[in-house]
Design a protein around this nucleic acid. Structure first.
Lengths: 213, 213
DNA sequence: CGGCCTCTAGAGCGATCACTCTAGTCAGGA
DNA sequence: TCCTGACTAGAGTGATCGCTCTAGAGGCCG
């Protein structure tokens, strides 16, 4: 019977989405889950940190599956835009509470907790791999698909941030239009075999490190 | 002598960047600032919340001035890209600790503290206004410049998140290239008087709400 | 039935949280 | 010189934090 364990993770995921890691008390978690207090430490001997890592990976996997719902091998730019539009509706309907399940935690722990930071990094890795696979399947050059995925995910996460802070889900739709533009550009460059234009930054030269992740 | 007050805000800003709001203890703040404990409550009778709001607005204003450093009326797409490249260097040089001064706090408080949420929203408003002004000055249609600003800021914030979590500042450079692409597209559409293409989402129809912010 | 193992039960632990309190120090103006 | 208000000083407040503890309930297998 790991029903209790699942309920703990589900409750933690909801609290993480809305309040982040540090503001979520274990007491709140067990109350929301309707679980006995000691059960948390039975299933997660590592305490809050272990439960947090498990929740990050689990809800990351669940959200990753949402990508598959929107891509069916049609117009990949339009499908990308549809994903953003659906996300915008979700953000609004939840009262600007539910957007990305791990973004808040990721920023909180990036410089303070290596275990949880790696968990969030792994989830982003998975998402980027999944999105890249979809763009490659649409005929985009693999390296270009990878950088495109980074930009699309950045647009989504950044738009979530702006939408929640400013209480305006239209930002997510706006970001979706830009994402679609970038996808179309990548598709065009692939079909016409044109290389990506080299950066010509105005003042500071571009970073010397490799651009693709 | 408001030297102590300034030091409190400066210390708080640094802690907010690296750990966020909830993980920052007032004890840490006064220690880092070298300030007496009671002084915090003398200058900020509202306590941690008031100090937090002041810090958000102040560091938001400082970072907003950085925008002016990179835009001089030249190639606005290249200037946008240069901004991202410089930001990437900063993220790397700080050990992936210092990126946006308010993003972490913004996500933490978006659903839990209205006072601080409004403070972060005001900062984002200012930034969007500033960026929009630069694009309008470059000849882009005002409405298009506004949505463009939203996408550019979303790209920056999202790239910061990915870069910090995955320890890869190249994501910020990648997002900068996409931002430059979006700027060039907006410039082209303005000079040739072509309207923006209407969204043709594949599965879910676009949100019914207005797209520009 | 008896022994075992998983899971439940909740009081209570020390530490730390944001914050308050009284008692000052010190400079500038009357 | 004295007064007043701005600021410093730090011990101490109750509340809450994550977590541990002992104890026992309940099902499974011999």
């Amino acid at each position: 019977m790991n029903d209790t364990k699942d309920r703990l993770v589900t409750a933690t995921a909801e609290l993480f989405r809305q309040r982040g890691y540090n503001a979520t008390a274990v007491k709140q978690i067990v109350e929301m889950a309707g679980a006995p207090f000691a059960s948390l430490y039975h299933f997660f001997p590592g305490g809050k940190e272990e439960l947090g890592a498990e929740t990050i990976r689990q809800s990351g996997a669940i959200y990753g599956q949402l990508i598959d719902v929107f891509f069916h091998g049609g117009d990949v730019a339009a499908e990308t835009e549809a994903f953003f539009c659906a996300a915008a509706d979700t953000v609004r309907d939840s009262g600007y509470a539910d957007a990305c399940p791990i973004a808040t935690v990721a920023l909180e722990v990036a410089s303070t907790n290596e275990v949880l930071r790696v968990a969030t990094a792994d989830v982003f890795d998975d998402w980027l791999d999944t999105i890249t696979g979809r763009y490659v399947a649409a005929g985009i050059d693999p390296a270009a698909a990878r950088t495109l995925s980074v930009s699309v995910l950045a647009l989504l996460e950044g738009a979530f941030l702006l939408a929640r802070a400013r209480r305006d889900e239209a930002h997510v739709v706006t970001a979706g239009a830009t994402a679609a533009l970038a996808v179309r550009d990548a598709v065009d460059r692939t079909t016409t075999k044109r290389p990506a234009p080299k950066a010509k930054a105005a003042r500071a030269r571009p970073s010397s490190r490799a651009q693709p992740s």
